[in-house]
Amino acid sequence: MPLIEFTDKGLYCPQGGFYIDPWRPVDRAIITHAHSDHARAGSGAYLCHRLTVPLLEWRLGVAAEAVQGVEWGEPVFMNGVRVSLHPAGHIIGSSQVRVEYQGEVWVVSGDYKTEDDGISGAFEPIKCQVFVTESTFGLPIYDWKPQPVIFGNIQDWVVGNREQGKASVLIAYSLGKAQRLLSCLEPVTEKIYVHGAVWNIHQALVNAGVALPPVERVMPEMPRELFKGQVVIAPSSAEGSPWIRRFQPFAVGVCSGWMQVRGNVRRRNADAGFALSDHADWKGLLGAIEATGAEKVFVTHGFQATLARYLNERGIAAAEVKTAYGEDEEGGEPTDKEEKEAAHE
């Protein structure tokens, strides 16, 4: 019996009796991070990183008693199986799950990135026999520029917009990218305005003790002049909505790994695209996989067939696994229902 099985409810550890990021309700769920395709409501008990707890409570409405928060590296034993969480570098609280039983070690990556973004915790390579990796950006065309370079580009863009009297609206996921952008924007603007969906996440994190630069929520009664030449962070649901019109004149900059390809920038009808991703790029994926020393690699959501084939050709036994993570086969980042709801405020 393998230590972890791939079932129609999610990744299951029969010996420990728990699931990792299940997509159907189960008794016990270990959650890598709070993005909606990895963390779903309805399970009996949840185990996750301490900083993921307030996010699960806020986003899924999970009762506080049902969630157990742990620190990175802190072991939890379930029927003799040793489980510990380790930084994945994806978003705040995101973790890899290390599962050990009778000397056999599996690591489930969840979503991860290998560059330290300064707020999510630096990705920790963990030795294991079997590694379950994501592959959202598993093609060599995805080769991220270092964060300081992209931040520089975003800052130049913001300053340029202000010189033309335009507000800068940055489109970013309300959980993860939005927090990551704050330290980029703080030096070039007095105030950072945020959409309600971003505001809610921000509050949940600040209340849990995370230190973040201050933001201001965009309110319906705010006069339009207030936003002239200012910086706004909003989720993608705000693009092209009536909500965004109050910033007129403004420029839209989309922050997403998909912006690496010109066609996607054009398709989004954005004025600028910044290839800023919370996922590992091709080199990041290969480096992380190699560092685990794993004998067997399972590749989940994204370019799983491509990455698995490439690993096999390089002498690393790999297989693709179908999961319900990611929007579709391209491993789109999660869509957030609440972002859409908050967009119409």
Binding site: L139, P140, I141, V261, R262, G263, T306, R309, Y310, E313
Partner: peptide, 25 residues
């Protein structure tokens, strides 16, 4: 780049433009 032909093809197909694919790789 030392990439196998099939992988180059996949990249090309995703990007949809040869000039851009090469620039990215």
């Amino acid at each position: 780049t030392g990439l196998p032909a099939w992988l180059f093809e996949e990249c090309y197909h995703t990007v949809g433009d040869l000039a851009e694919t090469i620039a990215l790789l």
